[in-house]
Design a protein around this nucleic acid. Structure first.
Lengths: 123, 123
DNA sequence: ATCATAGTTCAATGATCATTGAATTATTTG
DNA sequence: CAAATAATTCAATGATCATTGAACTATGAT
Protein backbone atom coordinates (compact mmCIF):
# COMPACT_ATOMS: atom_id res chain seq x y z
CA UNK A 1 0.00 0.00 0.00
CA UNK A 2 1.30 3.47 -0.86
CA UNK A 3 -0.33 5.38 1.97
CA UNK A 4 -0.90 3.33 5.08
CA UNK A 5 -0.90 4.47 8.68
CA UNK A 6 1.88 3.68 11.14
CA UNK A 7 1.02 2.72 14.73
CA UNK A 8 2.46 6.06 15.74
CA UNK A 9 0.15 7.94 13.40
CA UNK A 10 -2.85 5.98 14.66
CA UNK A 11 -1.94 6.74 18.24
CA UNK A 12 -1.39 10.43 17.54
CA UNK A 13 -4.68 10.74 15.67
CA UNK A 14 -6.72 8.94 18.32
CA UNK A 15 -5.04 10.93 21.07
CA UNK A 16 -5.92 14.12 19.21
CA UNK A 17 -9.59 13.17 18.97
CA UNK A 18 -9.74 11.76 22.50
CA UNK A 19 -9.73 15.18 24.14
CA UNK A 20 -13.29 16.50 24.65
CA UNK A 21 -12.45 20.04 23.56
CA UNK A 22 -10.60 18.87 20.46
CA UNK A 23 -13.48 16.57 19.59
CA UNK A 24 -15.84 19.55 19.79
CA UNK A 25 -13.51 21.56 17.57
CA UNK A 26 -13.29 18.72 15.06
CA UNK A 27 -17.06 18.24 15.02
CA UNK A 28 -17.53 21.95 14.49
CA UNK A 29 -15.13 21.88 11.53
CA UNK A 30 -17.11 19.10 9.86
CA UNK A 31 -19.86 21.71 9.52
CA UNK A 32 -17.61 24.06 7.60
CA UNK A 33 -14.28 25.84 7.82
CA UNK A 34 -13.85 28.23 10.72
CA UNK A 35 -11.35 30.59 12.29
CA UNK A 36 -9.97 30.95 15.79
CA UNK A 37 -12.27 33.79 16.81
CA UNK A 38 -15.42 32.07 15.57
CA UNK A 39 -14.52 28.90 17.44
CA UNK A 40 -13.92 31.05 20.51
CA UNK A 41 -17.44 32.44 20.29
CA UNK A 42 -19.12 29.16 19.48
CA UNK A 43 -17.22 26.88 21.83
CA UNK A 44 -16.37 29.35 24.58
CA UNK A 45 -12.65 28.56 24.63
CA UNK A 46 -9.75 31.00 25.05
CA UNK A 47 -7.90 31.92 21.83
CA UNK A 48 -4.57 30.60 23.05
CA UNK A 49 -6.18 27.34 24.17
CA UNK A 50 -7.76 27.02 20.75
CA UNK A 51 -4.40 27.63 19.09
CA UNK A 52 -2.94 24.83 21.15
CA UNK A 53 -5.70 22.34 20.30
CA UNK A 54 -5.75 23.33 16.64
CA UNK A 55 -2.01 22.73 16.58
CA UNK A 56 -2.44 19.25 18.03
CA UNK A 57 -5.09 18.43 15.44
CA UNK A 58 -2.82 19.82 12.70
CA UNK A 59 0.18 17.80 13.79
CA UNK A 60 -2.03 14.72 13.77
CA UNK A 61 -2.83 15.61 10.15
CA UNK A 62 -6.55 15.81 10.77
CA UNK A 63 -6.92 19.49 9.85
CA UNK A 64 -5.02 22.17 7.95
CA UNK A 65 -5.10 25.96 7.79
CA UNK A 66 -4.95 28.83 5.34
CA UNK A 67 -5.05 32.62 5.59
CA UNK A 68 -7.95 34.79 4.49
CA UNK A 69 -7.20 36.12 0.99
CA UNK A 70 -8.70 39.51 1.76
CA UNK A 71 -7.51 40.09 5.32
CA UNK A 72 -4.46 38.00 6.16
CA UNK A 73 -5.05 38.33 9.87
CA UNK A 74 -7.78 35.72 9.71
CA UNK A 75 -6.81 32.06 9.54
CA UNK A 76 -9.28 29.37 8.50
CA UNK A 77 -9.09 25.79 9.71
CA UNK A 78 -10.52 22.91 7.73
CA UNK A 79 -10.84 19.13 7.94
CA UNK A 80 -8.12 17.30 5.98
CA UNK A 81 -10.30 14.91 4.03
CA UNK A 82 -7.63 12.53 2.78
CA UNK A 83 -6.03 11.99 6.17
CA UNK A 84 -9.38 11.61 7.88
CA UNK A 85 -10.48 9.08 5.27
CA UNK A 86 -7.35 7.03 5.87
CA UNK A 87 -8.02 7.00 9.59
CA UNK A 88 -11.65 6.13 9.00
CA UNK A 89 -10.80 3.16 6.83
CA UNK A 90 -8.29 1.93 9.35
CA UNK A 91 -10.76 2.19 12.24
CA UNK A 92 -13.44 0.55 10.12
CA UNK A 93 -11.26 -2.51 9.98
CA UNK A 94 -10.05 -2.43 13.59
CA UNK A 95 -13.54 -2.11 15.02
CA UNK A 96 -15.16 -4.58 12.64
CA UNK A 97 -16.84 -6.94 15.07
CA UNK A 98 -17.59 -9.47 12.34
CA UNK A 99 -13.86 -9.88 11.98
CA UNK A 100 -13.39 -10.88 15.64
CA UNK A 101 -12.47 -14.53 15.72
CA UNK A 102 -13.85 -17.11 18.12
CA UNK A 103 -10.84 -18.95 19.42
CA UNK A 104 -10.88 -22.70 18.68
CA UNK A 105 -8.80 -23.47 21.77
CA UNK A 106 -8.21 -21.12 24.69
CA UNK A 107 -4.75 -20.91 26.20
CA UNK A 108 -5.83 -22.07 29.67
CA UNK A 109 -7.05 -25.39 31.11
CA UNK A 110 -10.60 -24.90 29.86
CA UNK A 111 -9.36 -24.62 26.31
CA UNK A 112 -7.02 -27.59 26.67
CA UNK A 113 -9.85 -29.68 28.12
CA UNK A 114 -12.13 -28.71 25.26
CA UNK A 115 -9.53 -29.82 22.75
CA UNK A 116 -9.46 -33.25 24.42
CA UNK A 117 -13.18 -33.55 25.15
CA UNK A 118 -14.44 -32.30 21.81
CA UNK A 119 -12.77 -34.81 19.54
CA UNK A 120 -13.98 -35.46 15.99
CA UNK A 121 -16.46 -38.38 15.93
CA UNK A 122 -15.10 -41.92 16.14
CA UNK A 123 -11.90 -41.12 18.01
CA UNK B 1 -32.11 6.52 20.43
CA UNK B 2 -31.98 3.95 23.23
CA UNK B 3 -28.24 3.34 23.27
CA UNK B 4 -26.22 6.30 22.13
CA UNK B 5 -22.77 7.36 23.27
CA UNK B 6 -22.13 10.35 25.51
CA UNK B 7 -19.18 12.65 24.77
CA UNK B 8 -17.59 11.27 27.90
CA UNK B 9 -17.88 7.68 26.67
CA UNK B 10 -16.43 8.65 23.30
CA UNK B 11 -13.51 10.39 24.95
CA UNK B 12 -12.86 7.46 27.30
CA UNK B 13 -13.02 4.94 24.46
CA UNK B 14 -10.70 6.91 22.18
CA UNK B 15 -8.30 7.54 25.03
CA UNK B 16 -8.27 3.82 25.75
CA UNK B 17 -7.39 2.96 22.15
CA UNK B 18 -4.93 5.85 21.77
CA UNK B 19 -2.24 4.17 23.85
CA UNK B 20 0.09 2.04 21.66
CA UNK B 21 0.23 -0.85 24.12
CA UNK B 22 -3.53 -0.92 24.59
CA UNK B 23 -4.02 -0.81 20.85
CA UNK B 24 -1.77 -3.86 20.52
CA UNK B 25 -3.75 -5.62 23.23
CA UNK B 26 -7.03 -4.76 21.53
CA UNK B 27 -5.77 -5.92 18.14
CA UNK B 28 -4.60 -9.18 19.69
CA UNK B 29 -8.02 -9.74 21.23
CA UNK B 30 -9.72 -9.35 17.86
CA UNK B 31 -7.92 -12.56 16.95
CA UNK B 32 -9.50 -14.45 19.82
CA UNK B 33 -9.93 -14.34 23.57
CA UNK B 34 -6.77 -14.41 25.63
CA UNK B 35 -5.50 -14.31 29.21
CA UNK B 36 -2.99 -12.14 31.04
CA UNK B 37 -0.14 -14.64 30.81
CA UNK B 38 -0.61 -15.30 27.12
CA UNK B 39 -0.63 -11.58 26.38
CA UNK B 40 2.52 -11.29 28.47
CA UNK B 41 4.27 -13.87 26.28
CA UNK B 42 2.97 -12.52 22.99
CA UNK B 43 3.31 -8.81 23.63
CA UNK B 44 6.22 -8.83 26.07
CA UNK B 45 4.51 -6.73 28.73
CA UNK B 46 4.66 -7.16 32.51
CA UNK B 47 1.59 -8.85 34.08
CA UNK B 48 0.80 -5.87 36.31
CA UNK B 49 1.12 -3.49 33.37
CA UNK B 50 -1.25 -5.72 31.41
CA UNK B 51 -3.71 -5.71 34.29
CA UNK B 52 -3.65 -1.95 34.26
CA UNK B 53 -4.24 -1.63 30.54
CA UNK B 54 -6.89 -4.35 30.51
CA UNK B 55 -8.64 -2.46 33.27
CA UNK B 56 -8.62 0.75 31.23
CA UNK B 57 -10.06 -1.08 28.23
CA UNK B 58 -12.69 -2.68 30.48
CA UNK B 59 -13.76 0.60 32.03
CA UNK B 60 -14.09 2.01 28.53
CA UNK B 61 -16.45 -0.90 27.85
CA UNK B 62 -14.39 -2.21 24.95
CA UNK B 63 -13.59 -5.59 26.49
CA UNK B 64 -14.89 -7.83 29.27
CA UNK B 65 -13.52 -10.77 31.24
CA UNK B 66 -14.53 -14.17 32.59
CA UNK B 67 -12.82 -16.87 34.62
CA UNK B 68 -11.76 -20.25 33.25
CA UNK B 69 -14.47 -22.77 34.11
CA UNK B 70 -11.94 -25.51 34.85
CA UNK B 71 -9.21 -23.54 36.62
CA UNK B 72 -10.51 -20.31 38.11
CA UNK B 73 -7.06 -18.81 38.32
CA UNK B 74 -7.11 -18.07 34.63
CA UNK B 75 -9.04 -15.06 33.38
CA UNK B 76 -9.97 -14.59 29.75
CA UNK B 77 -10.41 -11.22 28.12
CA UNK B 78 -12.61 -10.69 25.08
CA UNK B 79 -13.78 -7.90 22.80
CA UNK B 80 -17.19 -6.50 23.78
CA UNK B 81 -18.89 -6.63 20.40
CA UNK B 82 -21.92 -4.46 21.16
CA UNK B 83 -19.93 -1.62 22.67
CA UNK B 84 -17.32 -1.74 19.94
CA UNK B 85 -20.05 -1.68 17.29
CA UNK B 86 -21.59 1.39 18.88
CA UNK B 87 -18.23 3.15 18.83
CA UNK B 88 -17.62 2.05 15.27
CA UNK B 89 -20.92 3.46 14.07
CA UNK B 90 -20.29 6.71 15.86
CA UNK B 91 -16.79 7.10 14.38
CA UNK B 92 -18.11 6.13 10.96
CA UNK B 93 -20.32 9.17 11.11
CA UNK B 94 -17.77 11.53 12.67
CA UNK B 95 -15.09 10.70 10.13
CA UNK B 96 -17.41 10.64 7.13
CA UNK B 97 -15.67 13.06 4.82
CA UNK B 98 -18.64 13.18 2.46
CA UNK B 99 -20.57 14.75 5.32
CA UNK B 100 -18.12 17.64 5.66
CA UNK B 101 -19.89 20.77 4.48
CA UNK B 102 -18.41 23.45 2.29
CA UNK B 103 -19.26 26.68 4.02
CA UNK B 104 -21.40 29.06 1.93
CA UNK B 105 -19.96 32.10 3.72
CA UNK B 106 -16.81 32.16 5.80
CA UNK B 107 -16.80 34.13 9.02
CA UNK B 108 -13.99 36.47 7.97
CA UNK B 109 -13.68 39.27 5.40
CA UNK B 110 -13.11 36.86 2.52
CA UNK B 111 -16.42 35.18 3.22
CA UNK B 112 -18.26 38.49 3.64
CA UNK B 113 -16.82 39.73 0.37
CA UNK B 114 -17.95 36.57 -1.41
CA UNK B 115 -21.46 37.04 -0.09
CA UNK B 116 -21.56 40.52 -1.60
CA UNK B 117 -19.78 39.70 -4.85
CA UNK B 118 -21.64 36.51 -5.57
CA UNK B 119 -25.20 37.79 -5.68
CA UNK B 120 -28.02 35.89 -7.39
CA UNK B 121 -28.54 37.09 -10.96
CA UNK B 122 -30.43 40.33 -11.53
CA UNK B 123 -29.77 41.93 -8.16
C1' DA C 1 4.85 55.55 11.93
C1' DT C 2 1.08 54.30 15.11
C1' DC C 3 -2.61 51.75 16.57
C1' DA C 4 -5.88 47.91 16.44
C1' DT C 5 -6.86 43.20 15.54
C1' DA C 6 -6.41 38.01 14.80
C1' DG C 7 -3.66 34.73 16.25
C1' DT C 8 0.43 32.39 18.22
C1' DT C 9 4.15 31.46 21.48
C1' DC C 10 6.05 31.27 26.11
C1' DA C 11 6.30 29.96 30.98
C1' DA C 12 4.17 28.06 34.84
C1' DT C 13 0.87 25.12 37.26
C1' DG C 14 -1.69 21.20 38.40
C1' DA C 15 -3.72 16.94 36.72
C1' DT C 16 -3.45 12.78 34.47
C1' DC C 17 -1.11 8.83 33.14
C1' DA C 18 2.29 4.88 31.78
C1' DT C 19 5.55 2.23 33.91
C1' DT C 20 7.98 -0.39 37.60
C1' DG C 21 8.79 -3.33 41.78
C1' DA C 22 6.75 -5.02 45.91
C1' DA C 23 2.91 -6.65 48.33
C1' DT C 24 -1.62 -8.84 48.07
C1' DT C 25 -5.71 -11.61 46.50
C1' DA C 26 -7.89 -15.61 44.53
C1' DT C 27 -7.70 -20.19 43.24
C1' DT C 28 -5.88 -24.78 42.72
C1' DT C 29 -2.74 -28.52 44.12
C1' DG C 30 -0.18 -31.53 47.33
C1' DC D 1 -2.84 -26.82 56.27
C1' DA D 2 1.11 -25.05 53.14
C1' DA D 3 2.97 -24.19 48.63
C1' DA D 4 2.36 -22.76 43.92
C1' DT D 5 0.22 -20.15 40.29
C1' DA D 6 -2.49 -16.53 37.68
C1' DA D 7 -3.64 -12.18 38.33
C1' DT D 8 -4.48 -7.83 40.75
C1' DT D 9 -3.60 -3.94 43.79
C1' DC D 10 -0.53 -0.60 45.92
C1' DA D 11 2.96 3.06 46.12
C1' DA D 12 6.26 5.70 43.84
C1' DT D 13 8.41 7.90 39.84
C1' DG D 14 8.83 10.44 35.78
C1' DA D 15 6.58 11.97 31.58
C1' DT D 16 2.98 13.98 29.23
C1' DC D 17 -0.59 17.14 28.86
C1' DA D 18 -4.62 20.67 29.38
C1' DT D 19 -5.17 25.07 31.00
C1' DT D 20 -4.11 29.94 32.14
C1' DG D 21 -2.14 34.72 31.85
C1' DA D 22 1.34 37.40 29.76
C1' DA D 23 4.23 38.49 26.03
C1' DC D 24 4.88 38.35 21.23
C1' DT D 25 4.08 38.11 15.92
C1' DA D 26 1.72 39.17 11.78
C1' DT D 27 -1.31 41.76 9.21
C1' DG D 28 -4.22 45.62 8.06
C1' DA D 29 -6.17 50.37 8.91
C1' DT D 30 -5.49 55.46 9.94
Amino acid sequence: MPTTLTPDQISTSLKALADPNRLRIFERLTQGDSCNCELRDELGLAPNLLSHHLNVLSKAGLIHSRRDRVDGRWIYYAIDGSKVSLLRDWLLHLLDVERVETRPVLCGPEGQLASITCQPEGV
